[in-house]
């Protein structure tokens, strides 16, 4: 049951509400589903909709996404066209008009496809915490989480070089379906050899996985089917069972989707 909903008009006021025990409400596309099921317990919410945390900044190669920017806003921004495939694979337009960038970082798998993309892009978070503002690598937050009274205010990353970003999501339907395997990668190829690679897997396991084993196999190797097949063997991933697919199926199709993501076939 929702006991109260605050609608502060600044990040500082939103943070103060978190410190007083309120729970952040971004677009509500995850939290509200649980509250509508009466499954959330008694909650005080603080809505971030009016807290001045929306907006997209592109300054040279540096991209800054306000925490409460909606997925629809990303989709509409031509400067972020490399993210369009990822964003359009998430839910449906009436959900993407609500769902927020920072919210996507904290939804459980197999959701959080944008989080997979942002992790592949080595994003950093601007966080307002008890000690003031700080930066944290998204990678650290994905594994270690944040304190309950930390407020993410923005996500920053360096725009990928032309065609260096790959995103591939396998789902049961072409649109509006949870992930079975999501592959997000930042990869550069020079003279046929992999120069730089960051590879993130979503939808497969309980958490987003940075496939460091696969990255090691790929680095410096020719980008071909044989290398990618070896890369798919290189990480100990524990796939999950859910309504979308069995763990067995996920393990079985991961190499195929890694190949499609990296080689396009």
């Amino acid at each position: 049951m929702v006991i109260s909903v605050q609608t502060p008009d600044s990040a500082e006021a939103a943070h103060a509400a978190l410190q007083a025990g309120a729970v952040p409400l971004g677009g509500g596309t995850h939290l509200m589903t649980r509250l509508n099921d009466r499954a959330g317990g008694d909650l005080r919410l603080v809505s971030l909709r009016r807290a001045g945390l929306s907006g997209i900044g592109v300054d040279g190669a540096t991209v800054t996404l306000g925490a409460a920017t909606t997925l629809a806003d990303l989709e509409d921004d031509a400067r972020l066209s490399y993210l369009s495939g990822c964003v359009r694979s998430i839910a449906s337009p009436p959900v993407r008009n609500l769902a927020t960038v920072a919210g996507n970082l904290f939804v459980p798998q197999p959701y959080g496809d944008l989080a997979a993309a942002l992790l592949a892009l080595d994003a950093e978070l601007d966080v307002l915490g008890a000690g003031g503002a700080r930066r944290e690598p998204l990678e650290q937050v994905v594994t270690g989480g944040l304190r309950a009274d930390d407020l993410v205010t923005a996500v920053r990353f360096t725009a990928p070089a032309q065609s260096a970003f790959r995103f591939y999501k396998a789902a049961r339907r072409r649109l509006n379906s949870g992930s079975i395997v999501t592959v997000a990668a930042r990869i550069t190829v020079e003279d046929g050899l992999v120069g730089d690679v960051r590879l993130v897997l979503g939808g497969l396991a309980r958490r987003l996985v940075r496939a460091t084993g696969a990255e090691r196999v790929l680095l410096g190797a020719p980008l071909n089917a044989e290398t990618v097949a070896r890369a798919a063997e290189a990480d100990a991933i524990e796939p999950v069972d859910d309504a979308y697919a069995s763990a067995w199926y996920r393990a079985r199709v991961y190499p195929v989707h890694l190949r499609r993501a990296l080689l396009g076939a």
Partner: peptide
């Protein structure tokens, strides 16, 4: 999507929005 309405011109699922926000 059966609850879809336009909020400031954009389609949204109205079941997930606390109206005070």
């Amino acid at each position: 999507g059966s609850c879809t309405v336009l909020l400031d011109g954009r389609p949204v699922v109205s079941c997930l929005i606390p109206v005070v926000t």
